[in-house]
Deep mutational scan, measured.
Amino acid sequence: KLETFPLDVLVNTAAEDLPRGVDPSRKENHLSDEDFKAVFGMTRSAFANLPLWKQQNLKKEKGLF
């Protein structure tokens, strides 16, 4: 399991300012399950079932792209 970080560490943070080991294209993977659901309004599995373009739009909207 990946290390999780608080939302404010990941949202609207440039790649070079992210904690070590965080993939800038997969910031959402480093949210706790609770934060993930609070941000996206759905579970990880529901998010994973969305088309890629919709996932990317949601990530942009939430500052996690």
Rank of each mutant, 00 (worst) to 15 (best):
K1Y: 11
K1M: 12
K1A: 04
K1I: 02
K1P: 05
K1V: 05
L2E: 14
L2P: 13
L2Y: 15
L2S: 15
E3H: 08
F5V: 13
F5T: 12
F5A: 08
F5C: 11
F5D: 14
F5G: 13
P6Y: 02
L7D: 10
L7S: 06
L7C: 06
L7E: 11
L7M: 11
D8I: 02
D8F: 00
D8N: 11
D8K: 11
D8V: 01
D8M: 03
V9L: 11
V9I: 12
V9C: 10
V9H: 11
V9P: 07
L10F: 02
V11F: 04
N12C: 06
N12W: 02
N12M: 10
N12F: 05
N12E: 10
N12R: 07
T13D: 12
T13K: 15
A14K: 15
A14L: 12
A14M: 11
A14H: 12
A14Y: 03
A15P: 15
A15S: 12
E16I: 05
E16P: 11
E16N: 11
E16V: 08
E16Y: 05
E16Q: 10
D17R: 07
D17W: 06
D17T: 06
L18T: 07
L18Y: 04
L18N: 03
L18C: 09
P19H: 06
P19Q: 09
P19N: 02
P19E: 05
P19F: 00
R20V: 10
R20C: 10
G21S: 12
G21Q: 09
V22A: 06
V22P: 02
V22Y: 04
D23A: 03
D23P: 02
D23S: 04
D23G: 02
D23I: 09
D23M: 02
D23K: 02
P24A: 10
P24E: 11
P24R: 05
P24K: 11
P24S: 10
S25M: 12
S25E: 15
S25H: 08
S25R: 11
S25L: 11
S25I: 06
S25V: 11
R26C: 14
R26I: 07
K27Y: 07
K27P: 15
K27C: 12
E28P: 01
E28H: 01
E28Q: 01
E28Y: 03
N29P: 02
N29F: 04
N29V: 09
N29L: 13
N29C: 15
H30K: 06
H30Q: 04
H30W: 11
H30N: 04
H30R: 06
L31T: 02
L31C: 01
L31M: 09
L31G: 02
S32G: 06
S32W: 00
S32N: 09
S32T: 12
D33Q: 04
D33P: 08
D33I: 04
D33C: 07
D33H: 05
D33E: 14
D33K: 06
E34A: 13
E34N: 08
E34S: 14
E34H: 08
E34L: 09
D35P: 01
D35A: 03
D35Y: 00
F36E: 02
F36W: 05
F36V: 02
F36M: 03
F36H: 01
F36R: 00
F36Q: 00
F36G: 01
K37N: 12
K37L: 13
K37H: 14
K37D: 13
K37I: 08
A38H: 10
A38G: 10
A38L: 13
V39L: 14
V39E: 06
V39M: 09
V39R: 03
F40G: 00
G41S: 11
G41L: 07
G41T: 03
G41W: 00
G41H: 09
M42H: 04
M42L: 08
T43D: 14
T43I: 02
T43R: 07
T43W: 01
R44D: 01
R44M: 05
R44L: 02
S45D: 13
A46Q: 11
A46V: 13
A46C: 12
A46W: 03
A46Y: 06
F47D: 03
F47L: 01
F47K: 02
F47H: 01
F47W: 11
F47A: 00
A48W: 08
A48H: 13
A48D: 14
N49A: 14
N49I: 09
N49D: 11
L50A: 03
L50F: 05
L50S: 01
L50H: 00
P51N: 02
P51L: 00
P51F: 00
L52S: 14
L52H: 12
L52C: 11
L52I: 11
L52M: 14
L52A: 14
W53I: 10
W53H: 09
W53F: 15
K54G: 02
K54L: 10
K54Q: 11
K54T: 13
Q55I: 01
Q56C: 10
Q56R: 11
N57H: 12
N57G: 10
N57Y: 10
N57M: 12
N57V: 10
N57I: 14
N57R: 11
L58G: 00
L58C: 02
L58P: 00
L58A: 03
K59F: 01
K59D: 02
K60W: 07
K60R: 10
E61W: 03
E61S: 11
E61Q: 10
E61T: 08
E61C: 08
E61V: 06
K62M: 07
K62T: 10
G63L: 06
G63Y: 03
G63Q: 04
L64E: 06
L64F: 12
L64S: 04
F65S: 15
F65M: 14
F65G: 14
F65T: 09
F65I: 15
